[in-house]
Design a protein around this nucleic acid. Structure first.
Lengths: 335, 335
DNA sequence: CTGAAAGCGCTAACAG
DNA sequence: CTGTTAGCGCTTTCAG
């Protein structure tokens, strides 16, 4: 592996000159520039980024910390992040936490060793106060999708309450009164806000929520499956189900299919998070769509503003509005 | 940010001792160990990995180069890779090429600057001979899913021909004779092998392939959509379609749904690649399932064997067998 | 405009 | 067992 020294030797100049020629397009006489560039090319020289990082104190790498890349919500976010990172000449490191705070903490500890310049995180739990200890001056980060209680930082979130509200209101308008909720993890703000939106929608129409209709699905496929089964076994079965994320929606549909429950005739269903496949179910799924890719790009843009010092001193919290995409998985009561 | 120097000062020992205590659990007297550990803790010391990488000549980062993380096939692979990497104390950098050879080349160029210790790659095209120039001694890599012609390296692939063969044979057994193929990119081995398996299955039963039934879908949703439309417009429409990857399957189903073609009554469908959602289509999709997660873990394991020098000197090519998962999207002809 | 030299923070000989 | 010191490859003063 050729180093800057080899190039300097080959070109007959000092290493300082090589460095300058390669980094500053306006430096030096044309003659020496030629020599250096020729030498570099001849030796197939590739500057060692680690050495550069060492002196510059930055790596041009950011990390993306998420529960699980297999969740389509996060893969889309990830793509958004990667696209703007690459625009800024950065690379992104992927970190799956599996919703485990300790795994998450391990990752962040390694970040503190200057391996990344900053990170974007969908916290495992909103009780991860550990984050408050990371010095946002030297290691900026931005929250995505989920906030962390009492920890102030930039954030890109979706108005989850509004999304849930829209979904449940839609069902109420269709005449449903017993609407099951397959809720997300209660230790995430996301989960709680979607629950709140559900309750709020009921309140608006002056109805009260039957707590037995609210079942925790933990944001996982399996959890959604079990929750749906619980709902189906109820004496007074709901006529509609609102599912608080896409993984649980898959589990829910599985349970419904297994039980031979027809959608929407016997059960209306609305999921949170759109997917490529949601449209192709029979019937096509009505969902609350979040601007996932955009969330990724925005988060990355804010992070780079911090990194380049062009951000406003105040933390920015961007709240995006989700959209109700009405397809065919909901029917009016009595039809 | 505290450095090793600060810790040494605080503990009243040399920096070498600090380094040793922190890296070698058997080093030093109990007394000095205590002092060092206490000092490190007090200062919240976190060793600078970049500095360490600098001297050790390795970063403990590997890269995963794939066309698009949004393709579920690759997200599952990615998860497998990350799990193994994290087992070895490594992190993984994600690189999306969008099937673009030049974007891919850019990434690999940056790798040559010692930013990763090795990489796993699903090549954009099997004509990316550029890869042959990377020195596998200093920057080992392993192919996943797709090989590169004339470039020898470790590889984890699936027997694509066999998978396609199984799928098409299944359709032939059901009595289909006009089977459409939505083929993948012809400049990938994967795409060509699936085509070959298709042709082979026909040959085995002594039938010839009608070339008008083979349409290129380029491995994308849109491509699959267009290809399916082409197939539907044929004078002598096929009675079954075999789709060579999951993205195209989504596009194909969209086209079928739009055209009001019922599955499997009017058209049998088999997709390549299983998905969480394939099972929940109505009817549930018959697919060729690839061991995606396992492919990721195996690729990573081989890479780490190379990295640790425990691999056999010869290149290893692991060929995994895909499995035909029969659900309900195919019917017998005449039923 | 160019070169010499001082580090960046750490590890690993090399001495003692 | 412990400390001193020489780099890792690069950027960046500081001189010339």
């Amino acid at each position: 592996m050729a180093t800057i020294k080899d190039v300097a030797l080959e070109a007959g100049v000092s290493i300082a000159s090589v460095s300058r020629v390669l980094n500053d397009p306006n430096y030096g006489s044309a003659a020496m520039r030629m020599k250096v560039i020729a030498a570099a090319k001849k030796l197939g020289y590739q500057p060692n980024k680690i050495a550069r990082s060492m002196v510059k104190g930055q790596t041009n790498i950011i990390a993306l910390v998420i529960p699980d890349i297999r969740n389509q919500f996060f893969t889309s976010v990830a793509r958004g992040v990667e696209d703007v990172a690459s625009k800024y000449g950065y690379q992104v490191m992927l970190c799956n936490t599996d919703e485990s705070s300790s795994k998450q903490r391990q990752y962040i500890d390694t970040f503190r060793s200057k391996i990344v310049d900053g990170f974007i995180i969908a916290v495992a739990s909103d009780q991860d106060h550990y984050l408050d200890k990371v010095d946002r001056e030297t290691l900026p980060f931005v929250f995505i999708d989920r906030l962390c209680e009492g920890v102030s930082a930039d954030a890109i979130v979706v108005d989850n309450r509004d999304g849930a509200h829209k979904a449940v209101s839609h069902l109420l308008e269709l005449g449903h009164r017993r609407i099951g909720l397959i809720a997300g993890k209660s230790d995430t703000l996301t989960g709680r806000e979607r629950l709140r939106g559900y309750e709020e929608a009921y309140r608006v129409v002056g109805e009260t929520v039957d707590q037995s209709l609210v079942v925790d699905g933990g944001f996982t496929i399996e959890g959604g499956y079990q929750a749906a089964k619980t709902l189906l076994e109820l004496e007074d079965r709901p006529t509609a189900i609102f599912v608080a994320n896409n993984s649980m929606t898959i589990g829910c549909i599985r349970a419904l299919t297994e039980a031979g429950v027809r959608i929407p005739e016997e059960m209306s269903v609305i999921g949170f998070d759109d997917s490529e496949w949601a449209e192709f179910f029979v019937p096509p799924l009505t969902v609350v769509r979040q601007p996932t890719y955009t969330m990724g790009t925005l988060a990355a843009e804010i992070l780079f503003q911090r990194l380049t010092g062009t951000a406003s001193p105040q933390w920015q919290e961007v709240v995006l509005k989700p959209e109700l995409v009405i397809r065919a998985s909901c029917s009016s009561v009595g039809c």
